[in-house]
Design a protein around this nucleic acid. Sequence first.
DNA 1: GTCTGTATTTGAACATGTTCAAAATATCGC
DNA 2: GCGATATTTTGAACATGTTCAAATACAGAC
Lengths: 227, 227
Amino acid sequence: MTTPAMKIRPTPRAEDTRRRIYEAALELFREKGFEQTTMRDTAAKAGVALGAAYYYFSAKEAIVLAFYQEMQESSHDSILHAMAGHKKLKDRIRVVLEKRLELLAPNRKFCAALFGHAPDATDPLSPFSSETRPIRERAMEHLRVAVEGGDVKVPADLKQRLPYLLWLYQMAIILFWLYDRSPRQQRTQALTEKSLGLLVNLLRLSGLPLMKPLRKTMLELVETVAL
Amino acid sequence: MTTPAMKIRPTPRAEDTRRRIYEAALELFREKGFEQTTMRDTAAKAGVALGAAYYYFSAKEAIVLAFYQEMQESSHDSILHAMAGHKKLKDRIRVVLEKRLELLAPNRKFCAALFGHAPDATDPLSPFSSETRPIRERAMEHLRVAVEGGDVKVPADLKQRLPYLLWLYQMAIILFWLYDRSPRQQRTQALTEKSLGLLVNLLRLSGLPLMKPLRKTMLELVETVAL
DNA sequence: GTCTGTATTTGAACATGTTCAAAATATCGC
DNA sequence: GCGATATTTTGAACATGTTCAAATACAGAC
């Protein structure tokens, strides 16, 4: 019997097959887009039967999720490293956003597929689901570090929730970017620059004693939604 | 030849068939949910062939859209009327939200189907598409009136964009509500109450001369996104 | 090497949204 | 009423995501 931890040994051969399917799929997604690529295409290109694709991926979208996950993992160090060179909070957050988008960029067109399931936290593929929690926490960690080493003093109560809030902010930017059809996604750049300025200014203001009641209300609001 | 305006005469009989399909669908959606209801079910219940359903509705989701549209139309007067009794901006906006949710309530479960297409403004079913513009403008009109007759003085530059911003706010609340599994959607109620308070306070503050630069930045941000 | 159970692979079958050409029906000018 | 044209209706065909029972390959015990 397998332990509750499950998935003890994926055979090397199995791992290889999975990889082949995964890479065939990504290539096709890039070429023809997510919707245009059928699971049969993918299986054929990978040289396996249709069923095999489903043995390794619970659904078509799960392949995209795997990509997103891998991308996230591989970016971890490079993001932390890139951030190290900056002191200003604005720059630090910008670095996180830029790196993320840069890595997503070659596959921009099809990542949108994931957002279809987004609002339903029950769906395993939702960014809010418990299944995707590890990915989410990784991303939040980046943002926590960004604030930690930045030049803006944030009140303790807000600081605690800030990674989550910034993660939401990041998701919003990514969502906008995915559907941004302006050349070279210039609108996203503009949006990022402007919103970052606003964001950092608000964080600065949030420290003023005058702002305490407003901050409290806002945090209560977050608790109501986030719980 | 038909004029460019198209769709000159839907025969009474045709209108009847459409209605039968529409109503069969809604009933099934309510009973079994959107995903569980097949177009074949709907056609069967309406006593027509499968193809007929597609003659009248371009897609399964289009039926939901039709419902949303009808709901919106029928609510127009009742919303304006209900608002007339209130002077405080907070109450006026609350009335709009409450009425909307109240009307949506019997069909809460399946309205979520519409939000799958939401982010892609190209998709005719997206709330941001040009096809859904009339619905959107109706909703914005309610919110414009709400502000117009309220007790909060809003600077002109902000006022102009406010209906759109409030519409976004309304959409967010609806989205949250659709997926709110708490008993009687209490969390939505809490969210509405808290966020409304915050919102109105922010609008009050927005008038202070001190806030002008912040307001400007925020509005620029909106322009960047909304264009 | 053979046996046994597990992991992997297969491909047919299924469900369902959607399309479409053909059939049926209604409408209109005469 | 008749023929022509436009509208409505039909149901079969299609495409594709997904499931699943059966077949196959494999690893380890003996």
